[in-house]
Nucleic acid binder design. Structure first.
Length: 417
DNA sequence: AAGATCAGCAACCGCTCTGAA
DNA sequence: ATTCAGAGCGGTTGCTGATCT
């Protein structure tokens, strides 16, 4: 069991119990189907008495209106409750309390949101509902639920471990770390884990389907230029996370490309290899001839000077720059089909050539993989390039070029000796 | 049918960076 | 200027279901 990150700095928080009189129907988007609070940072330091007073005021208003309203200076939007306290554990007079945890931590609120969102996704709630009682963790089956969310009921006994007076108070000034609180809540996840879970899985705008050819192209293009800057690559594909892209590359796309290249190599071999001799086969050793050393360097890329790209600003290459590609000085129309044997992308500026070399710094074995395959551009990998205008690149069109279109044009391939 | 292996992928680890106090 | 919690990121792990033997 991996250990939880434990925050060193104690976090002051208040536990407020809100008794909501009936749920509002969530007609809004799922994202809004949750508690949203804007709590001024200064207010985090408010005394428990002040918090209690605010709470009491708000509770009165809430009772009058049937929902929670915001005091001046802050806004609360309270939708159907996130968590219910198990039956029998409720304090007297609060039949269906909603437990809110006000923290100076977006992460913790996210934990609550996360539970609600998971509940929505599961279709069938595994979070304790009103009137239900649960013993121990709630498991809905599958790894995601058992491992990601160890959802146990909130109950007063757990809270009382830290605040024994909680049963008879509406405000609970307690000094705990965020991890303590999450343990108390039964989540067994730190805020960081919850955030990650949200970003990579629960976020409603996440695209969960298979990757398209367009996305393959984007990934290969940017990977070839940047290496494993997955977050930047993912930023060009709405709905995809860096983790998605990374996993996809490592498990599928890389193999796919290798397979295609292997097929191509076999074809080339059949077409161009000399008649077989009786000489014993020589096991190949890879030599990166084109780059002049056994270390891999990405192709030298001259950048457009107007963009002001520096090696310290690699991100700008994607967000601001998608330079024109040429090959051997010849611009190739995007509509032209590019052979799978095309070898390189060079990027040419109209005037001065400020060369930027995406070199070995930060480049891992995957880049060696690319180099070993002899590819300089994503069009090579994908075997046939289908031009996509303004995929998600804000700037000029990409023009892939075939420097040599015959089957022997793999001049950037490794050579075997 | 049962165990072994593989593939997919969400989550974790550990590090750096950022910004608030 | 310093401290430190939280965010961001890339590499890696390990769980689960599918497939193979």
């Amino acid at each position: 069991m991996r250990s939880l990150h434990r925050s060193r700095r104690p976090v002051k928080f208040y536990l407020l119990r809100l008794s909501l009189s009936g749920n509002r129907t969530a007609k809004d988007s799922p994202l809004e189907n949750r508690v949203v609070m804007h709590w001024p940072r200064r207010q985090e330091k408010a005394s428990s008495a002040a918090a209690s007073a605010l709470y009491n005021t708000e509770r009165e208003r809430e009772r009058e209106r049937g929902h929670a309203a915001a005091p001046s200076g802050r806004t609360w939007s309270i939708r159907p409750p996130l968590l219910y306290i198990g039956q029998g554990e409720n304090p007297p007079g609060l039949p269906a309390p909603l437990l809110l945890v006000l923290l100076p931590l977006g992460s913790l609120l996210l934990c609550l949101v996360l539970l609600r969102e998971q509940e929505r996704r599961d279709g069938e709630s595994s979070v304790l509902r009103q009137g239900e009682r649960e013993e121990g963790p709630v498991v809905t089956g599958g790894r995601r639920d058992t491992q990601d969310l160890h959802r146990e009921a909130w109950n007063w006994r757990q809270l009382d471990r830290f605040a024994p007076e909680s049963r008879n108070r509406t405000d609970l000034p307690v000094s705990l770390t965020s991890c303590d609180l999450l343990h108390t809540a039964g989540l067994k996840r730190c805020g960081k884990s919850c955030r990650l879970r949200w970003l990579n899985y629960l976020r409603p705008d996440i695209k969960h389907g298979a990757f398209t050819e367009e996305e393959d192209t984007i990934i290969c293009t940017l990977y070839n230029r940047l290496g494993s800057r997955w977050s930047i690559i993912a930023s060009q594909m709405p709905g995809r996370t860096d983790n998605d892209v990374k996993n996809y590359w490592n498990t599928k796309l890389k193999k796919k490309l290798m397979l295609r290249h292997a097929n191509l190599s076999v074809t080339n071999h059949i077409l161009h290899s000399p008649p077989p001799t009786s000489a014993p086969p020589i096991l190949p050793t890879v030599k990166t001839e084109v780059f002049g050393s056994t270390d891999f360097d990405f192709p030298t890329v001259p950048l457009h000077p107007d963009y002001g790209i520096t090696t310290e600003q690699p991100q700008k290459l994607y967000s601001d720059v998608m330079p024109y590609a040429h090959a051997n000085g010849q611009v190739v129309s995007p509509s032209e089909e590019v052979s799978a044997a095309s070898s390189s992308i060079t990027v040419e500026t109209s005037s001065s050539h400020s060369f930027l070399n995406w070199s070995t710094a930060g480049v891992g074995s995957n880049d060696l993989f690319l180099s070993a395959l002899g590819f300089g551009g994503a069009g090579d990998f994908l075997g046939g390039y289908e031009y996509q205008e303004n995929l998600y690149f804000p700037n000029p069109s990409i023009m892939w070029a075939a420097s040599e279109t015959d089957a022997q044009g793999l001049h950037q391939s490794p050579t075997y000796s």
